[in-house]
Amino acid sequence: MLKDIGYSLAVKQHKNRIYSYSFFMLGNKMDADDVTQEVLIRLWQNMGNFNLTAMRAWVMKTTHNLCLDYLRRRKTAQQRGVDLDEETADLIPAEDGSIYPDIELQRKLLKEKLNIAINNLPESLKSVFVLYEINGLRYKDISEILSLPINSVKVYLFRARKKLQDELRQLVYEKAY
């Protein structure tokens, strides 16, 4: 009974963080769905094995490891010639309509580019970037989740921001020519 209540609270607290991280890491909804399900089932199986303070780190670590597994599997599948259905264009959730269609369109285009650029980041940089910028975690938490020293997290974040900027410039350049 207590386990069920605790679990419900944990799901409520972590579901969006798990989903968002796996969504940005994997770049498609289907894999994000699968990873989220898997993490939440593992969370249920491991309820009681860790205290509440360690739960967030455990959840995100598990999510990160599962995402890496999916990416490895995807790489293997690509090497074997399997065509994966990427839904990069669907990355942005729909927003309410704006009264300024031009501004809204520009925003949408920028967000699309941004999502593509994030998706194009190397895994190591993307994980730090998404955890810090999208999920709003601190250096210390990221260091714990990714088993990296805090200084490395800072360097990875710096590289990710730079790489993202390069990617955006590249996308703008490709669009212009």
Partner: peptide, 12 residues
């Protein structure tokens, strides 16, 4: 300003 990605109910 990226909108928050929310976990769909069907997953839960």
């Amino acid at each position: 300003s990226l909108p928050k990605v929310e976990c769909p109910d069907e997953v839960i």
